[in-house]
Amino acid sequence: MIKLLLNTLYVQTQQAYLRLDHETIVVEVEGTKTLQVPIHHIGAIVMFGHVSISPYLLGKCANQGISVIWYDAYGRFLARATGRTSGNVLLRRAQHQILEDEKRMLHIASRFVSGKIRNSKSVLQRGMRDYPEKRLRLEQSVKQLDQSLRNIGKQTTLDELRGVEGYASSVYFEAFASLIRSDEDGFFAFTVRSRRPPRNPINACLSFAYSILTQDCISALEGVGLDPQIGYLHALRPGKPSLGLDLVEEFRPYLADRFVLTLINRKQLDKSDFDMRPGGAVFLNEKGRRTFLAAYQKRKQEEIQHPIINQKVPLGLLPHVHARLLARYLRGDIDEYVPFVMR
Rank of each mutant, 00 (worst) to 15 (best):
H107M: 04
V113L: 10
L99R: 02
E100V: 08
S120L: 06
S110T: 02
S122Q: 15
S110I: 06
R111L: 04
L124W: 09
E100P: 02
L124K: 07
D130C: 07
I117S: 05
V123N: 08
L99M: 00
R118H: 15
S120T: 11
R118L: 14
Q125D: 14
N119M: 10
I98F: 13
N119Q: 13
D101S: 07
K116L: 02
K103T: 06
R126D: 05
H107V: 02
Q97F: 09
Q97E: 12
M105W: 08
H96M: 14
E102M: 11
F112D: 01
R126S: 12
V113R: 05
I117Q: 12
G115P: 08
S110A: 10
Q125L: 15
G115M: 04
K103W: 02
S110N: 13
G127L: 07
R129G: 13
N119I: 12
A109S: 00
V113S: 08
M128A: 09
I108F: 06
L124S: 05
R104F: 11
M105Y: 02
S110L: 02
S114G: 04
D101P: 09
R111E: 13
K116E: 09
L106R: 04
Q97C: 01
I117V: 01
E102G: 05
G127C: 12
R118E: 14
A109N: 08
A109T: 03
G115T: 13
I98L: 10
K103P: 06
R129D: 05
M128W: 00
M128Y: 01
D130E: 14
V123L: 02
H107P: 01
D130R: 03
R118A: 15
D101F: 12
I108Y: 02
R111V: 02
I108L: 12
D101H: 15
V123M: 00
L99Q: 02
L99A: 04
S114P: 14
Q125I: 13
K103V: 01
V123G: 03
L124C: 13
E102C: 01
D130P: 05
S122D: 08
D130V: 02
V123Y: 08
F112T: 03
S122T: 15
D101K: 11
V123A: 05
I108D: 04
M105R: 06
N119K: 07
S120H: 07
E102K: 10
R118Q: 15
Q97S: 13
L106W: 09
